[in-house]
């Protein structure tokens, strides 16, 4: 890869930006700058004068970057969005992953394709990570709810811990619900009977 290519990452998520930066550095791009502050975005970008700008699609400042396409006195080098009209699959993949790329005119398309592919895989990796984190969080919360409901049942029906759990599990199976949902109903009901 060409270490001379200067890349700017515009992303308000510091974790995702770091993951992407790591990937780019591993691939041999040494000049990577992250921007997480959106005020005066264009001025910051002009000061860095990058060859490639990567921005996440959840960022409203994408519209600010579109201004760079306009012929303007401030722009040193013309910048275009990386869209290869013949390659809709890669556009689709990048939109799906949630990233968009802008390049300085004249940068070789193949090089850009490498950078974009790397972005897509890193963004997707981040989404998977986020998904796992969300699932872990939910599991942890479910556990807490189930434990509370278990306590309520043990006290109210004078059951052992095992039996209280079995009761909820059987009810959940019968009603085609998750145990956590049944547990939540137990807690709600108990609060109403207070």
């Amino acid at each position: 890869m060409d270490p001379g290519i200067k890349i700017v990452i515009v992303d308000e998520s510091p974790v995702r930006a770091a993951i992407l930066e790591d990937g780019l550095r591993e691939a041999g791009f040494t000049q990577v700058v992250r921007i997480s502050e959106m005020a005066h975005l264009l001025a910051r970008i002009y000061a860095i004068d990058p060859d490639v700008i990567l921005i996440d699609l959840a960022n409203p400042s994408r519209d600010v970057l579109e201004q760079m396409f306009q012929v303007s006195r401030i722009v040193k080098r013309p910048i275009a969005m990386f869209v290869d009209q013949s390659d809709t699959a890669s556009i689709q993949a990048s939109v799906d992953a949630g990233v968009s790329a802008y390049i300085v005119d004249g940068l070789k398309k193949e090089r850009m394709k490498n950078i974009l592919d790397l972005c897509i895989s890193r963004f997707n990796a981040f989404s998977r990570l986020q998904g796992e984190l969300d699932r872990t969080k939910t599991a942890l919360e479910d556990r807490k709810i189930i434990d509370r409901a278990k306590g309520i049942l043990m006290k109210a029906k004078n059951l052992s811990e095992e039996d209280a759990y079995a009761l909820m599990r059987n009810t959940a199976m019968k009603e085609n619900k998750k145990i956590a949902e049944v547990a939540q109903s137990v807690i709600t009901a108990a609060e109403m009977f207070k």
Binding site: L57, N59, P60, R62, D63, L65, E66, T88, I91, V95
Partner: peptide, 13 residues
């Protein structure tokens, strides 16, 4: 959506 660029691109593709 958060940007006109997104709306345009998602409509286009």
């Amino acid at each position: 959506e958060v940007s006109w660029s997104n709306v345009r691109d998602k409509l286009n593709i």
